[in-house]
Amino acid sequence: MGDPGTGAAVPATESEPIPLSALQHAVYCLRQAALIHLERLWEENRFTAEGQVLHRVADKPGGRQVRGVRRQMALPLACRRLNLAGVADVVEFHRSEGGEVPFPVEFKRGKPKAHRADEVQLCAQGLCLEEMFGCAVPAGALFYGETRRRQEVPFDAELRALTETTAGALADVLRTQRTPPAHYKASLCRACSLLELCRPQLGGRSALGYRRSAVEALAEGQPGP
């Protein structure tokens, strides 16, 4: 499932499910997730644009058989327990003695990353599939556009715990309507499309709050913040 580059995201509430893609943002940076899904801010850069192109190819609904494996593209997913929802790029249904076992495949631009944001988003899809189909989903795969190869990801206890913890942390942010403060980290911030909106060097003020205070200062004839 791709980043929301085509329009403003709608902030989730307790009654609205959290987008699966938001978990990827939250692992990368919880503040980034809040800016996108709470403050409804978005900016494209080369990385997000390339991701959009890749997902336009992958996100076409339909199903087919490939080498005896049933594949479903653009499959809607949901998990009531964690209040998650989204669309899987591809879900393969592998045959086993007990029937078909879902195997999610997520398409990503670039190559495997040092952080686990992609893995958490994929694991969240697995948790959705487990609830929807009532069976264990032990693994999935990430397909990277740069390497043109799959990387299989086992949904072990550590990854499941990280996924659920991330979902809980993001749910708290959306419920309290509070954007976390910024903490500048060059390796992450430089690649973030929201760098200019986030302004991490300002010490943690939310982008929306910064805009409001600037408008208020101008209205009162004072210098901006």
Rank of each mutant, 00 (worst) to 15 (best):
Leu122Gln: 08
Gln177Ser: 12
Gly98Ala: 14
Arg150Ser: 09
Val53Asp: 09
Leu170Cys: 01
Cys128Glu: 04
Ser21Met: 09
Arg149Ser: 10
Glu14Ser: 13
Gly7Ser: 12
Cys189Trp: 04
Ala136Ile: 03
Glu16Ala: 14
Glu14Met: 11
Pro225Gly: 10
Thr179Asp: 01
Arg70Asp: 12
Ala74Val: 00
Ala9Leu: 05
Gly126Ser: 02
Ala88Pro: 04
Gly203Met: 05
Pro180Glu: 06
Gly99Asp: 09
Pro19Gly: 06
Glu43Asp: 15
Gly51Cys: 13
Ala219Phe: 13
Gln121Asn: 07
Arg31Gly: 01
Arg190Gln: 15
Ser21Cys: 09
Gly5Gln: 09
Phe143Met: 05
Cys192Glu: 09
Ala58Tyr: 04
Leu127Gln: 03
Arg178Lys: 13
Leu75Pro: 01
Glu220Thr: 03
Leu35Ala: 09
Asp3Val: 13
His37Val: 00
Lys113Met: 10
Leu122Glu: 04
Ser96Glu: 07
Gly168Phe: 06
Arg212Asn: 01
Trp42Glu: 05
Glu92Met: 10
Glu216Gln: 14
Cys128His: 06
Pro154Phe: 06
Ala136Glu: 13
Ala219Glu: 14
Glu44Val: 02
Gly140Asn: 04
Glu50Tyr: 00
Leu54Gly: 03
Ala34Ser: 14
Gln32Asp: 09
Gly99Gln: 08
Pro17Glu: 08
Gly68Gln: 08
Ser193Phe: 06
Leu159Arg: 07
Ile18Ala: 05
Asp3Ser: 12
Glu158Pro: 03
Gly99Met: 05
Arg149Lys: 14
Gly168Leu: 10
Leu195Phe: 13
Val173Phe: 04
Phe93Cys: 06
Ala12Asp: 05
Arg150Asn: 09
Met1Glu: 12
Leu77Val: 02
Ala78Met: 08
Arg178Gly: 02
Gln65Glu: 15
Pro76Phe: 02
Gly110Gln: 00
Glu158Ala: 15
Ala139Val: 01
Ala167Tyr: 07
Leu174Cys: 07
Arg95His: 05
Phe93Tyr: 14
Glu158Gln: 14
Thr6Glu: 13
Glu130Ile: 03
Ala207Gly: 15
Leu84Ala: 10
Val27Glu: 12
Pro76Leu: 04
His94Thr: 00
Ala58Glu: 09
Arg80Gln: 13
Gly98Thr: 07
Leu162Asn: 03
Val27Lys: 04
Ala186Lys: 13
Asp3Ile: 11
Val120Gly: 04
Arg212Tyr: 11
Leu218Lys: 10
Lys111Arg: 15
Asp118Cys: 13
Arg81Ser: 15
Asp156Met: 05
Ala22Gly: 06
Arg175Phe: 07
Val53Phe: 07
Arg67Phe: 11
Lys108Trp: 02
Arg95Phe: 02
Gly168Trp: 08
Thr166Met: 05
Ala9Thr: 05
His183Thr: 02
Thr176Trp: 11
Phe133Gly: 00
Arg149Gln: 13
Ala85Asn: 06
Ala186Asp: 08
Glu92Ala: 14
Gly63Asp: 13
Ala191Trp: 07
Ala34Val: 04
Phe103Gly: 02
Arg211Gly: 04
Leu188Ser: 12
Ser213Val: 08
Gly2Met: 05
Gln177Pro: 00
Asn45Gly: 06
Ala58Cys: 06
Arg190Trp: 07
Leu208Val: 03
Lys108Phe: 00
Arg199Leu: 10
Ala182Arg: 05
Ser187Asn: 06
Tyr210Arg: 10
Ile18Cys: 11
Glu220Leu: 15
Phe143Asp: 02
